[in-house]
Design a binder for these strands. Structure first.
Length: 570
RNA sequence: CGGGGUAUAGCGCAGUCUGGUAGCGCACUUGUCUGGGGGACAAGGGGUCGCAAGUUCGAAUCUUGCUACUCCGACCA
Protein backbone atom coordinates (compact mmCIF):
# COMPACT_ATOMS: atom_id res chain seq x y z
CA UNK A 1 0.00 0.00 0.00
CA UNK A 2 1.13 3.54 -0.68
CA UNK A 3 1.29 5.98 2.19
CA UNK A 4 -0.51 8.50 0.01
CA UNK A 5 -3.47 6.11 0.29
CA UNK A 6 -3.36 5.50 4.04
CA UNK A 7 -4.10 8.18 6.57
CA UNK A 8 -0.84 8.87 8.37
CA UNK A 9 -2.12 10.88 11.29
CA UNK A 10 0.99 11.14 13.41
CA UNK A 11 1.28 13.78 16.12
CA UNK A 12 4.45 15.41 17.32
CA UNK A 13 3.06 16.29 20.68
CA UNK A 14 1.47 14.01 23.23
CA UNK A 15 -2.20 14.70 23.90
CA UNK A 16 -2.57 15.91 27.47
CA UNK A 17 -5.09 13.35 28.69
CA UNK A 18 -3.11 10.25 27.73
CA UNK A 19 -1.55 8.75 30.83
CA UNK A 20 0.11 5.53 29.81
CA UNK A 21 2.55 4.82 27.01
CA UNK A 22 0.28 2.68 24.88
CA UNK A 23 -2.44 5.32 24.92
CA UNK A 24 0.02 8.10 24.09
CA UNK A 25 1.66 6.15 21.30
CA UNK A 26 -1.59 4.95 19.78
CA UNK A 27 -2.74 8.55 19.56
CA UNK A 28 0.60 9.85 18.37
CA UNK A 29 1.07 7.13 15.78
CA UNK A 30 -2.40 7.84 14.45
CA UNK A 31 -3.90 4.43 15.28
CA UNK A 32 -6.87 5.66 17.25
CA UNK A 33 -8.78 8.81 18.12
CA UNK A 34 -11.02 9.38 21.09
CA UNK A 35 -14.69 9.95 20.41
CA UNK A 36 -15.97 10.18 23.99
CA UNK A 37 -14.83 8.89 27.34
CA UNK A 38 -13.89 5.26 26.86
CA UNK A 39 -14.94 5.27 23.19
CA UNK A 40 -12.41 5.23 20.38
CA UNK A 41 -12.33 5.28 16.61
CA UNK A 42 -9.81 2.93 15.03
CA UNK A 43 -8.08 4.85 12.26
CA UNK A 44 -7.01 2.86 9.19
CA UNK A 45 -3.47 2.27 10.43
CA UNK A 46 -4.71 1.07 13.82
CA UNK A 47 -7.41 -1.08 12.32
CA UNK A 48 -4.78 -2.97 10.35
CA UNK A 49 -3.17 -3.97 13.64
CA UNK A 50 -6.47 -4.94 15.19
CA UNK A 51 -7.34 -7.09 12.17
CA UNK A 52 -4.01 -8.87 12.41
CA UNK A 53 -4.66 -9.71 16.02
CA UNK A 54 -8.14 -10.94 15.07
CA UNK A 55 -6.74 -13.09 12.27
CA UNK A 56 -4.37 -14.87 14.63
CA UNK A 57 -7.19 -15.48 17.07
CA UNK A 58 -9.44 -16.83 14.30
CA UNK A 59 -6.78 -19.20 13.00
CA UNK A 60 -6.07 -20.63 16.41
CA UNK A 61 -9.73 -20.91 17.30
CA UNK A 62 -10.33 -22.84 14.11
CA UNK A 63 -7.43 -25.14 14.96
CA UNK A 64 -8.94 -25.69 18.38
CA UNK A 65 -12.18 -26.75 16.76
CA UNK A 66 -14.28 -23.72 17.65
CA UNK A 67 -16.87 -22.40 15.23
CA UNK A 68 -17.33 -18.71 14.62
CA UNK A 69 -20.71 -17.08 14.86
CA UNK A 70 -21.86 -13.55 15.55
CA UNK A 71 -24.37 -12.66 18.21
CA UNK A 72 -26.17 -9.34 18.53
CA UNK A 73 -24.45 -6.64 20.52
CA UNK A 74 -27.81 -5.62 21.94
CA UNK A 75 -29.54 -8.22 24.03
CA UNK A 76 -33.05 -8.58 25.42
CA UNK A 77 -33.53 -8.03 29.13
CA UNK A 78 -35.55 -11.23 29.52
CA UNK A 79 -32.50 -13.46 29.14
CA UNK A 80 -30.64 -11.49 31.77
CA UNK A 81 -33.63 -11.60 34.04
CA UNK A 82 -33.72 -15.37 33.72
CA UNK A 83 -30.15 -15.74 34.95
CA UNK A 84 -30.66 -13.08 37.60
CA UNK A 85 -27.92 -10.91 36.22
CA UNK A 86 -30.26 -8.10 35.19
CA UNK A 87 -30.39 -7.24 38.89
CA UNK A 88 -26.94 -8.43 39.88
CA UNK A 89 -24.82 -6.86 37.19
CA UNK A 90 -25.25 -3.30 38.41
CA UNK A 91 -24.69 0.01 36.66
CA UNK A 92 -21.89 -1.40 34.54
CA UNK A 93 -24.62 -2.90 32.38
CA UNK A 94 -25.76 -0.31 29.87
CA UNK A 95 -29.53 -0.61 29.73
CA UNK A 96 -31.51 0.59 26.75
CA UNK A 97 -35.19 0.96 25.95
CA UNK A 98 -36.53 0.67 22.46
CA UNK A 99 -39.41 2.74 21.07
CA UNK A 100 -41.92 0.34 22.57
CA UNK A 101 -40.38 0.69 25.97
CA UNK A 102 -38.98 -2.86 25.91
CA UNK A 103 -35.80 -3.30 27.85
CA UNK A 104 -32.45 -4.26 26.35
CA UNK A 105 -28.83 -4.01 27.27
CA UNK A 106 -25.66 -3.53 25.29
CA UNK A 107 -23.91 -6.83 25.87
CA UNK A 108 -20.89 -6.79 28.19
CA UNK A 109 -20.63 -10.56 27.64
CA UNK A 110 -22.72 -13.19 25.91
CA UNK A 111 -23.32 -16.18 28.20
CA UNK A 112 -27.07 -15.67 28.15
CA UNK A 113 -27.43 -15.38 24.40
CA UNK A 114 -25.22 -18.34 23.56
CA UNK A 115 -26.74 -20.58 26.21
CA UNK A 116 -30.21 -19.72 25.02
CA UNK A 117 -29.17 -20.45 21.45
CA UNK A 118 -27.54 -23.75 22.26
CA UNK A 119 -30.51 -24.77 24.37
CA UNK A 120 -32.70 -24.33 21.33
CA UNK A 121 -30.44 -25.75 18.65
CA UNK A 122 -28.51 -28.59 20.27
CA UNK A 123 -30.73 -31.51 21.11
CA UNK A 124 -28.61 -34.62 21.23
CA UNK A 125 -25.52 -35.68 23.09
CA UNK A 126 -24.22 -36.75 19.67
CA UNK A 127 -23.69 -33.09 18.81
CA UNK A 128 -21.40 -32.58 21.79
CA UNK A 129 -18.97 -31.29 22.72
CA UNK A 130 -19.33 -28.09 20.76
CA UNK A 131 -17.57 -24.74 20.97
CA UNK A 132 -18.68 -21.43 19.48
CA UNK A 133 -16.88 -18.15 19.44
CA UNK A 134 -17.33 -14.65 18.15
CA UNK A 135 -15.30 -11.49 17.88
CA UNK A 136 -17.67 -8.82 19.03
CA UNK A 137 -17.80 -5.31 20.30
CA UNK A 138 -18.70 -5.28 23.97
CA UNK A 139 -19.72 -2.46 26.21
CA UNK A 140 -19.15 -2.16 29.92
CA UNK A 141 -20.10 1.13 31.48
CA UNK A 142 -16.94 1.39 33.59
CA UNK A 143 -17.11 3.82 36.48
CA UNK A 144 -13.88 5.31 35.34
CA UNK A 145 -12.59 4.44 31.91
CA UNK A 146 -8.87 5.10 31.71
CA UNK A 147 -5.63 4.19 30.06
CA UNK A 148 -7.06 4.50 26.56
CA UNK A 149 -7.93 1.12 25.11
CA UNK A 150 -6.62 -0.67 28.17
CA UNK A 151 -9.78 0.05 30.08
CA UNK A 152 -12.19 1.42 27.53
CA UNK A 153 -15.93 1.16 27.82
CA UNK A 154 -16.40 -0.18 24.31
CA UNK A 155 -13.87 -2.81 23.36
CA UNK A 156 -13.36 -5.72 21.03
CA UNK A 157 -13.43 -9.14 22.57
CA UNK A 158 -13.16 -12.69 21.38
CA UNK A 159 -15.45 -14.79 23.52
CA UNK A 160 -15.86 -18.52 23.18
CA UNK A 161 -18.26 -20.87 24.91
CA UNK A 162 -18.07 -24.64 25.04
CA UNK A 163 -20.83 -27.11 25.92
CA UNK A 164 -20.42 -30.58 27.33
CA UNK A 165 -22.14 -33.55 28.81
CA UNK A 166 -19.64 -34.03 31.60
CA UNK A 167 -16.67 -32.59 33.43
CA UNK A 168 -14.13 -34.74 31.60
CA UNK A 169 -15.18 -33.39 28.27
CA UNK A 170 -15.13 -29.84 29.63
CA UNK A 171 -11.65 -30.38 30.99
CA UNK A 172 -10.50 -31.60 27.59
CA UNK A 173 -11.75 -28.52 25.78
CA UNK A 174 -10.38 -26.34 28.55
CA UNK A 175 -6.94 -27.85 28.01
CA UNK A 176 -7.27 -27.37 24.26
CA UNK A 177 -8.17 -23.73 24.80
CA UNK A 178 -5.29 -23.28 27.20
CA UNK A 179 -2.95 -24.53 24.48
CA UNK A 180 -4.63 -22.35 21.84
CA UNK A 181 -4.25 -19.26 24.04
CA UNK A 182 -0.61 -20.05 24.57
CA UNK A 183 -0.08 -20.28 20.81
CA UNK A 184 -2.01 -17.07 20.17
CA UNK A 185 0.10 -14.98 22.53
CA UNK A 186 3.29 -16.66 21.39
CA UNK A 187 2.48 -15.88 17.79
CA UNK A 188 1.82 -12.28 18.74
CA UNK A 189 5.33 -12.11 20.09
CA UNK A 190 4.26 -11.26 23.62
CA UNK A 191 5.97 -12.04 26.88
CA UNK A 192 3.08 -13.47 28.85
CA UNK A 193 2.19 -15.90 31.60
CA UNK A 194 -0.85 -18.05 32.28
CA UNK A 195 -1.82 -17.35 35.84
CA UNK A 196 -4.00 -19.25 38.28
CA UNK A 197 -7.11 -17.23 38.88
CA UNK A 198 -9.91 -17.25 41.38
CA UNK A 199 -11.82 -20.46 40.87
CA UNK A 200 -14.79 -19.27 42.89
CA UNK A 201 -17.25 -21.95 43.84
CA UNK A 202 -16.13 -24.41 41.20
CA UNK A 203 -12.77 -25.37 42.62
CA UNK A 204 -9.83 -27.12 41.05
CA UNK A 205 -7.60 -25.74 38.34
CA UNK A 206 -10.63 -24.35 36.65
CA UNK A 207 -9.56 -20.84 35.80
CA UNK A 208 -6.54 -19.17 34.28
CA UNK A 209 -5.86 -15.61 33.35
CA UNK A 210 -3.32 -14.82 30.66
CA UNK A 211 -1.22 -11.82 31.51
CA UNK A 212 1.12 -9.82 29.35
CA UNK A 213 4.01 -8.79 31.56
CA UNK A 214 4.50 -5.03 31.60
CA UNK A 215 5.46 -2.61 34.32
CA UNK A 216 2.28 -0.61 33.76
CA UNK A 217 0.06 -3.64 34.38
CA UNK A 218 -2.82 -3.23 36.80
CA UNK A 219 -2.39 -6.68 38.35
CA UNK A 220 0.48 -8.03 40.38
CA UNK A 221 1.48 -11.57 39.54
CA UNK A 222 3.56 -13.97 41.57
CA UNK A 223 5.46 -16.61 39.64
CA UNK A 224 8.07 -19.20 40.42
CA UNK A 225 11.57 -18.74 39.11
CA UNK A 226 11.89 -22.49 38.67
CA UNK A 227 8.51 -23.90 37.73
CA UNK A 228 5.42 -22.99 35.71
CA UNK A 229 3.60 -21.83 38.82
CA UNK A 230 2.04 -18.39 38.48
CA UNK A 231 -0.86 -16.79 40.30
CA UNK A 232 -2.41 -13.47 40.98
CA UNK A 233 -0.68 -12.04 44.05
CA UNK A 234 -3.99 -11.84 45.90
CA UNK A 235 -4.47 -15.53 45.27
CA UNK A 236 -1.00 -16.96 45.69
CA UNK A 237 -0.68 -19.04 48.79
CA UNK A 238 1.95 -18.00 51.30
CA UNK A 239 3.19 -21.31 52.58
CA UNK A 240 4.50 -21.86 56.09
CA UNK A 241 8.20 -21.31 56.61
CA UNK A 242 10.07 -24.59 56.58
CA UNK A 243 11.49 -26.20 59.69
CA UNK A 244 10.58 -26.03 63.33
CA UNK A 245 9.95 -22.76 65.10
CA UNK A 246 13.22 -21.71 66.78
CA UNK A 247 13.33 -22.22 70.53
CA UNK A 248 12.99 -19.17 72.82
CA UNK A 249 16.30 -17.63 73.85
CA UNK A 250 15.18 -14.32 75.32
CA UNK A 251 12.93 -13.54 78.22
CA UNK A 252 9.87 -11.46 77.69
CA UNK A 253 10.28 -7.86 78.81
CA UNK A 254 8.34 -4.65 78.43
CA UNK A 255 10.13 -1.77 76.72
CA UNK A 256 9.11 1.86 76.84
CA UNK A 257 8.40 3.02 73.32
CA UNK A 258 6.97 6.52 73.72
CA UNK A 259 5.26 7.84 70.63
CA UNK A 260 6.42 4.88 68.51
CA UNK A 261 3.33 3.64 66.73
CA UNK A 262 4.10 2.21 63.34
CA UNK A 263 6.18 -0.89 62.76
CA UNK A 264 8.72 1.29 61.03
CA UNK A 265 9.03 3.63 64.00
CA UNK A 266 9.30 0.79 66.49
CA UNK A 267 11.97 -0.96 64.40
CA UNK A 268 13.94 2.24 64.07
CA UNK A 269 13.63 2.93 67.77
CA UNK A 270 14.58 -0.56 68.90
CA UNK A 271 17.12 -1.15 66.12
CA UNK A 272 15.54 -4.33 64.83
CA UNK A 273 14.24 -5.33 61.43
CA UNK A 274 10.53 -5.53 60.66
CA UNK A 275 10.62 -9.30 60.28
CA UNK A 276 11.31 -9.61 64.02
CA UNK A 277 8.11 -7.74 64.88
CA UNK A 278 4.48 -8.71 64.58
CA UNK A 279 1.65 -6.36 63.82
CA UNK A 280 -1.80 -6.88 65.20
CA UNK A 281 -4.85 -5.76 63.27
CA UNK A 282 -8.34 -5.77 64.75
CA UNK A 283 -11.20 -6.41 62.39
CA UNK A 284 -14.91 -6.95 62.89
CA UNK A 285 -15.99 -10.50 63.62
CA UNK A 286 -19.01 -12.37 62.35
CA UNK A 287 -20.73 -12.26 65.73
CA UNK A 288 -22.38 -8.95 66.45
CA UNK A 289 -20.09 -6.32 67.99
CA UNK A 290 -17.25 -8.80 68.12
CA UNK A 291 -13.69 -8.11 67.02
CA UNK A 292 -10.99 -10.51 65.96
CA UNK A 293 -7.22 -9.98 66.09
CA UNK A 294 -5.16 -10.78 63.00
CA UNK A 295 -1.44 -11.11 63.57
CA UNK A 296 1.13 -10.70 60.80
CA UNK A 297 4.86 -10.36 60.63
CA UNK A 298 5.89 -6.71 60.57
CA UNK A 299 7.12 -6.78 56.98
CA UNK A 300 4.02 -8.53 55.62
CA UNK A 301 0.78 -7.18 54.26
CA UNK A 302 -2.71 -8.38 55.08
CA UNK A 303 -4.60 -10.03 52.23
CA UNK A 304 -8.23 -9.02 52.54
CA UNK A 305 -9.60 -11.88 50.53
CA UNK A 306 -7.80 -14.51 52.56
CA UNK A 307 -8.85 -12.88 55.82
CA UNK A 308 -12.49 -12.71 54.74
CA UNK A 309 -12.54 -16.44 54.13
CA UNK A 310 -11.96 -17.16 57.81
CA UNK A 311 -15.14 -18.25 59.54
CA UNK A 312 -14.78 -15.78 62.41
CA UNK A 313 -14.07 -12.74 60.24
CA UNK A 314 -16.86 -10.55 58.92
CA UNK A 315 -17.09 -10.12 55.18
CA UNK A 316 -16.48 -7.60 53.74
CA UNK A 317 -13.41 -7.03 55.83
CA UNK A 318 -13.92 -4.06 58.14
CA UNK A 319 -11.30 -2.65 60.44
CA UNK A 320 -12.31 -2.09 64.05
CA UNK A 321 -12.91 1.48 65.18
CA UNK A 322 -10.42 3.09 67.59
CA UNK A 323 -13.05 2.73 70.32
CA UNK A 324 -13.40 -0.99 69.68
CA UNK A 325 -9.63 -1.35 69.76
CA UNK A 326 -9.30 0.38 73.09
CA UNK A 327 -12.13 -1.69 74.53
CA UNK A 328 -10.61 -4.98 73.39
CA UNK A 329 -6.94 -4.32 74.15
CA UNK A 330 -6.81 -1.53 76.69
CA UNK A 331 -4.46 0.43 74.47
CA UNK A 332 -4.52 2.49 71.29
CA UNK A 333 -3.70 1.22 67.83
CA UNK A 334 0.08 1.33 67.68
CA UNK A 335 0.64 -0.32 71.02
CA UNK A 336 -1.52 -3.41 70.71
CA UNK A 337 -0.30 -6.97 70.57
CA UNK A 338 -1.53 -10.55 70.87
CA UNK A 339 -0.32 -11.17 74.42
CA UNK A 340 -3.10 -11.55 76.96
CA UNK A 341 -5.99 -10.88 74.58
CA UNK A 342 -9.38 -12.43 75.32
CA UNK A 343 -10.69 -12.02 71.76
CA UNK A 344 -9.97 -14.63 69.08
CA UNK A 345 -6.42 -14.37 67.74
CA UNK A 346 -5.70 -15.59 64.21
CA UNK A 347 -2.06 -15.71 63.24
CA UNK A 348 -0.39 -15.79 59.86
CA UNK A 349 1.89 -18.73 59.22
CA UNK A 350 5.01 -16.60 59.06
CA UNK A 351 4.22 -14.71 62.25
CA UNK A 352 3.53 -17.99 64.01
CA UNK A 353 6.99 -19.19 63.10
CA UNK A 354 8.75 -16.36 64.93
CA UNK A 355 10.60 -16.67 68.21
CA UNK A 356 11.77 -13.84 70.46
CA UNK A 357 9.60 -11.35 68.61
CA UNK A 358 8.45 -7.85 69.39
CA UNK A 359 4.84 -6.73 69.64
CA UNK A 360 2.67 -4.09 71.23
CA UNK A 361 2.18 -4.50 74.98
CA UNK A 362 -1.51 -3.51 75.07
CA UNK A 363 -0.29 -0.66 77.20
CA UNK A 364 0.08 2.77 75.61
CA UNK A 365 3.72 3.65 74.94
CA UNK A 366 5.01 0.15 75.55
CA UNK A 367 6.07 -2.83 73.47
CA UNK A 368 7.10 -6.31 74.51
CA UNK A 369 10.37 -7.83 73.37
CA UNK A 370 11.50 -11.45 73.49
CA UNK A 371 7.96 -12.75 73.13
CA UNK A 372 7.45 -16.44 72.36
CA UNK A 373 4.42 -18.50 71.41
CA UNK A 374 3.35 -21.20 73.85
CA UNK A 375 5.54 -19.81 76.64
CA UNK A 376 4.11 -16.26 76.75
CA UNK A 377 0.82 -16.72 74.96
CA UNK A 378 -1.17 -19.69 73.68
CA UNK A 379 -0.13 -21.67 70.63
CA UNK A 380 -1.99 -19.70 67.96
CA UNK A 381 -4.51 -20.71 65.36
CA UNK A 382 -2.43 -20.46 62.20
CA UNK A 383 -3.71 -19.61 58.72
CA UNK A 384 -2.54 -17.95 55.53
CA UNK A 385 -3.43 -14.28 55.90
CA UNK A 386 -0.89 -12.33 53.93
CA UNK A 387 0.11 -11.33 50.42
CA UNK A 388 3.11 -13.20 49.13
CA UNK A 389 6.25 -11.15 48.59
CA UNK A 390 9.21 -11.62 46.29
CA UNK A 391 11.50 -14.33 47.63
CA UNK A 392 8.76 -16.42 49.27
CA UNK A 393 8.90 -20.12 48.53
CA UNK A 394 6.70 -21.12 45.62
CA UNK A 395 3.55 -22.93 46.77
CA UNK A 396 4.33 -25.86 44.46
CA UNK A 397 7.57 -26.37 46.33
CA UNK A 398 9.78 -25.51 43.39
CA UNK A 399 11.84 -22.36 43.52
CA UNK A 400 11.01 -18.94 44.88
CA UNK A 401 8.38 -16.43 43.88
CA UNK A 402 9.07 -13.33 41.86
CA UNK A 403 6.54 -10.55 41.51
CA UNK A 404 5.79 -8.86 38.22
CA UNK A 405 3.02 -6.68 36.91
CA UNK A 406 0.70 -7.95 34.25
CA UNK A 407 -2.07 -6.87 31.94
CA UNK A 408 -4.91 -9.36 31.77
CA UNK A 409 -5.52 -10.12 28.10
CA UNK A 410 -7.20 -13.48 28.36
CA UNK A 411 -9.28 -15.45 30.80
CA UNK A 412 -10.48 -19.02 30.51
CA UNK A 413 -12.69 -20.75 33.00
CA UNK A 414 -15.08 -23.56 33.61
CA UNK A 415 -18.56 -22.24 34.18
CA UNK A 416 -20.31 -25.44 35.14
CA UNK A 417 -24.07 -25.52 34.71
CA UNK A 418 -24.98 -22.14 36.19
CA UNK A 419 -26.30 -20.65 32.99
CA UNK A 420 -27.46 -23.83 31.31
CA UNK A 421 -29.66 -24.62 34.29
CA UNK A 422 -31.28 -21.22 34.47
CA UNK A 423 -31.81 -21.07 30.72
CA UNK A 424 -32.74 -24.71 30.53
CA UNK A 425 -30.07 -25.77 28.06
CA UNK A 426 -30.23 -29.53 27.97
CA UNK A 427 -29.90 -32.39 25.51
CA UNK A 428 -31.06 -35.95 25.42
CA UNK A 429 -28.27 -38.14 26.74
CA UNK A 430 -27.48 -41.65 25.67
CA UNK A 431 -29.83 -42.86 28.37
CA UNK A 432 -32.72 -41.04 26.69
CA UNK A 433 -33.04 -38.64 29.59
CA UNK A 434 -32.62 -34.87 29.43
CA UNK A 435 -29.33 -33.70 30.81
CA UNK A 436 -28.22 -30.18 31.66
CA UNK A 437 -25.11 -29.06 29.79
CA UNK A 438 -21.93 -28.01 31.48
CA UNK A 439 -20.08 -25.02 30.07
CA UNK A 440 -16.69 -23.43 29.63
CA UNK A 441 -16.02 -19.85 28.72
CA UNK A 442 -12.91 -18.34 27.11
CA UNK A 443 -12.23 -14.64 26.51
CA UNK A 444 -9.54 -12.56 24.87
CA UNK A 445 -9.56 -8.78 24.97
CA UNK A 446 -8.51 -8.24 21.38
CA UNK A 447 -8.31 -4.46 21.54
CA UNK A 448 -6.56 -4.69 24.86
CA UNK A 449 -3.96 -7.07 23.44
CA UNK A 450 -3.00 -4.40 20.94
CA UNK A 451 -2.45 -1.87 23.72
CA UNK A 452 -0.64 -4.44 25.85
CA UNK A 453 1.72 -5.24 22.99
CA UNK A 454 2.70 -1.57 22.87
CA UNK A 455 3.20 -1.41 26.62
CA UNK A 456 5.64 -4.23 26.23
CA UNK A 457 7.28 -3.16 22.97
CA UNK A 458 8.22 0.48 22.60
CA UNK A 459 11.11 2.90 22.98
CA UNK A 460 11.41 6.66 23.14
CA UNK A 461 10.89 6.96 19.41
CA UNK A 462 7.66 5.04 19.34
CA UNK A 463 6.10 1.63 18.93
CA UNK A 464 8.15 -1.46 18.09
CA UNK A 465 5.59 -3.89 16.72
CA UNK A 466 6.09 -7.62 16.92
CA UNK A 467 6.13 -8.70 13.28
CA UNK A 468 2.81 -10.52 13.56
CA UNK A 469 0.91 -7.43 14.72
CA UNK A 470 2.63 -4.67 12.75
CA UNK A 471 0.33 -2.71 10.44
CA UNK A 472 2.95 -3.36 7.74
CA UNK A 473 5.95 -5.62 7.88
CA UNK A 474 8.16 -3.45 5.73
CA UNK A 475 8.28 0.17 4.72
CA UNK A 476 10.10 1.37 1.63
CA UNK A 477 11.35 4.94 1.88
CA UNK A 478 12.73 6.51 -1.26
CA UNK A 479 14.86 9.56 -0.52
CA UNK A 480 13.77 12.65 -2.43
CA UNK A 481 12.17 10.60 -5.14
CA UNK A 482 10.33 13.61 -6.49
CA UNK A 483 13.62 15.04 -7.67
CA UNK A 484 14.82 12.02 -9.58
CA UNK A 485 12.91 10.10 -12.18
CA UNK A 486 15.51 7.39 -12.08
CA UNK A 487 15.07 6.90 -8.34
CA UNK A 488 11.32 7.05 -8.59
CA UNK A 489 11.34 4.33 -11.22
CA UNK A 490 13.69 2.17 -9.18
CA UNK A 491 11.55 2.59 -6.06
CA UNK A 492 8.35 1.79 -7.95
CA UNK A 493 10.00 -1.30 -9.38
CA UNK A 494 11.16 -2.47 -5.96
CA UNK A 495 7.74 -1.82 -4.46
CA UNK A 496 6.08 -3.86 -7.16
CA UNK A 497 8.61 -6.63 -6.80
CA UNK A 498 8.12 -6.90 -3.04
CA UNK A 499 4.38 -6.72 -3.41
CA UNK A 500 4.46 -9.56 -5.91
CA UNK A 501 6.65 -11.56 -3.56
CA UNK A 502 3.89 -11.31 -0.98
CA UNK A 503 5.41 -8.81 1.42
CA UNK A 504 3.10 -6.67 3.48
CA UNK A 505 4.70 -3.44 2.45
CA UNK A 506 4.07 0.27 2.84
CA UNK A 507 5.57 2.46 0.14
CA UNK A 508 6.18 5.90 1.62
CA UNK A 509 5.63 7.94 -1.49
CA UNK A 510 4.85 11.17 0.34
CA UNK A 511 6.80 14.25 -0.65
CA UNK A 512 8.35 14.50 2.77
CA UNK A 513 11.86 15.18 3.88
CA UNK A 514 13.66 11.99 4.89
CA UNK A 515 13.76 12.97 8.55
CA UNK A 516 10.00 13.29 8.65
CA UNK A 517 9.50 9.93 6.98
CA UNK A 518 11.96 8.22 9.32
CA UNK A 519 10.41 9.73 12.41
CA UNK A 520 6.89 8.79 11.30
CA UNK A 521 7.84 5.20 10.52
CA UNK A 522 9.71 4.83 13.81
CA UNK A 523 6.68 6.17 15.66
CA UNK A 524 4.28 3.87 13.82
CA UNK A 525 6.71 1.09 14.52
CA UNK A 526 7.07 -0.77 11.23
CA UNK A 527 9.61 -3.54 11.91
CA UNK A 528 11.71 -3.42 8.74
CA UNK A 529 12.74 -0.38 6.72
CA UNK A 530 14.26 -0.18 3.28
CA UNK A 531 15.80 3.08 2.14
CA UNK A 532 16.49 3.77 -1.48
CA UNK A 533 18.56 6.84 -2.41
CA UNK A 534 20.52 8.16 -5.37
CA UNK A 535 23.81 7.27 -3.72
CA UNK A 536 22.90 3.64 -3.26
CA UNK A 537 21.26 3.42 -6.61
CA UNK A 538 24.54 4.29 -8.31
CA UNK A 539 26.10 1.24 -6.73
CA UNK A 540 23.05 -0.96 -7.00
CA UNK A 541 22.55 -0.97 -3.23
CA UNK A 542 19.58 -0.55 -0.94
CA UNK A 543 19.85 0.27 2.76
CA UNK A 544 18.07 -1.65 5.49
CA UNK A 545 17.24 -0.74 9.06
CA UNK A 546 15.69 -2.85 11.77
CA UNK A 547 13.23 -1.00 14.03
CA UNK A 548 13.69 -3.28 17.03
CA UNK A 549 17.46 -3.21 17.50
CA UNK A 550 18.40 -0.30 15.26
CA UNK A 551 20.86 -2.39 13.30
CA UNK A 552 21.40 -1.45 9.68
CA UNK A 553 22.87 -3.00 6.57
CA UNK A 554 23.33 -2.47 2.87
CA UNK A 555 22.72 -5.07 0.25
CA UNK A 556 22.37 -5.42 -3.49
CA UNK A 557 19.03 -4.35 -4.87
CA UNK A 558 18.86 -7.66 -6.68
CA UNK A 559 19.06 -9.51 -3.34
CA UNK A 560 16.31 -7.55 -1.63
CA UNK A 561 13.76 -10.37 -1.44
CA UNK A 562 16.20 -12.91 -0.17
CA UNK A 563 17.71 -10.52 2.34
CA UNK A 564 14.34 -9.40 3.68
CA UNK A 565 13.03 -12.92 3.94
CA UNK A 566 16.09 -13.87 5.91
CA UNK A 567 15.66 -10.99 8.34
CA UNK A 568 11.99 -11.66 8.89
CA UNK A 569 12.61 -15.23 9.81
CA UNK A 570 15.33 -14.26 12.26
C1' C B 1 -20.18 8.04 44.31
C1' G B 2 -16.17 11.09 47.40
C1' G B 3 -11.94 14.50 46.75
C1' G B 4 -8.88 17.61 43.31
C1' G B 5 -8.06 19.82 38.42
C1' U B 6 -9.21 21.52 33.51
C1' A B 7 -12.34 23.61 29.40
C1' U B 8 -9.19 29.58 24.67
C1' A B 9 -7.63 27.33 16.50
C1' G B 10 -6.73 20.26 14.62
C1' C B 11 -2.72 19.32 18.83
C1' G B 12 0.17 21.50 23.04
C1' C B 13 -0.35 25.89 25.81
C1' A B 14 -0.24 31.51 27.50
C1' G B 15 -3.73 35.35 28.53
C1' U B 16 -8.13 35.21 33.71
C1' C B 17 -5.34 37.40 39.75
C1' U B 18 -5.74 43.47 38.18
C1' G B 19 -12.44 43.60 32.81
C1' G B 20 -10.73 47.47 27.51
C1' U B 21 -9.46 45.22 19.61
C1' A B 22 -7.89 36.89 21.09
C1' G B 23 -2.14 35.34 21.37
C1' C B 24 2.33 31.71 21.00
C1' G B 25 4.53 26.92 19.27
C1' C B 26 3.34 22.73 16.25
C1' A B 27 0.11 21.29 12.26
C1' C B 28 -2.38 23.37 7.62
C1' U B 29 -2.19 26.63 2.61
C1' U B 30 1.05 29.42 -1.06
C1' G B 31 5.92 30.83 -2.76
C1' U B 32 11.39 30.71 -2.70
C1' C B 33 15.57 28.33 -1.03
C1' U B 34 16.79 23.58 1.01
C1' G B 35 17.05 18.26 0.53
C1' G B 36 19.80 11.26 4.32
C1' G B 37 16.75 11.90 11.15
C1' G B 38 10.64 16.05 12.66
C1' G B 39 14.67 22.36 7.66
C1' A B 40 14.84 28.12 6.75
C1' C B 41 12.52 32.58 5.21
C1' A B 42 8.18 35.12 3.65
C1' A B 43 3.00 35.56 3.07
C1' G B 44 -1.73 33.39 4.55
C1' G B 45 -6.27 30.60 6.39
C1' G B 46 -8.49 28.97 10.81
C1' G B 47 -11.47 30.53 17.40
C1' U B 48 -19.52 32.40 19.42
C1' C B 49 -12.71 31.71 24.57
C1' G B 50 -17.56 24.50 26.96
C1' C B 51 -23.08 26.11 27.64
C1' A B 52 -26.71 29.44 29.99
C1' A B 53 -28.00 33.46 32.88
C1' G B 54 -26.25 37.73 35.61
C1' U B 55 -22.99 42.26 36.97
C1' U B 56 -20.88 46.21 33.74
C1' C B 57 -20.52 51.48 29.04
C1' G B 58 -17.63 47.04 28.02
C1' A B 59 -16.64 40.00 30.09
C1' A B 60 -12.05 34.75 27.79
C1' U B 61 -11.31 37.60 32.46
C1' C B 62 -16.03 38.93 37.85
C1' U B 63 -20.80 36.11 39.93
C1' U B 64 -24.29 31.97 39.77
C1' G B 65 -25.99 27.56 37.62
C1' C B 66 -25.15 23.62 34.25
C1' U B 67 -22.25 20.32 31.05
C1' A B 68 -18.06 17.72 29.41
C1' C B 69 -13.31 15.97 30.15
C1' U B 70 -9.48 14.46 33.41
C1' C B 71 -6.48 12.76 37.91
C1' C B 72 -6.63 10.17 42.84
C1' G B 73 -9.78 6.90 45.65
C1' A B 74 -13.75 3.39 46.04
C1' C B 75 -15.67 -0.24 42.17
C1' C B 76 -14.34 -3.87 38.27
C1' A B 77 -18.36 -12.18 36.68
Amino acid sequence: MRSSQVLIATLKETPADAEIISHQLMLRAGLIRRSASGLYTWLPMGLKVLRKAEAIVREEMAKAGAQELLMPSIQPAELWQQTGRWEKYGPELLRINDRHGREFCYGPTHEEVITDLVGQEIRSYKQLPITFYQIQTKFRDEIRPRFGLMRAREFLMKDAYSFHLDQDSLQQTYDTMFAAYTRIFERMGLNFRPVLADTGSIGGNASHEFHVLASSGEDAIAFSNQSQYAANVELAEAIAPSGERPAPTATMAAVDTPKQHTIEQVCDFMKVSADQCVKTLLVEGVAEDSVVALVLRGDHELNDVKAEKHSLVASPLTFATPEQVTAACGANIGSIGPVGLTIPVIVDRAAAHLADFICGANQNGQHLAGVNWVRDLPEPETVDLRNVIAGDASPDGEGNLEIARGIEVGHIFQLGDNYSQKLNANVLAESGKAQILTMGCYGIGVSRVVAAAIEQHHDDRGIIWPLALAPFQVVLVPINAHKSVRLRDAAEAMYQQLLDAGFDILFDDRKQRPGVAFADMDLIGIPHRLILGERGLDEGLVEYKCRADGSDAEFAISDVIEQLTQRMEA
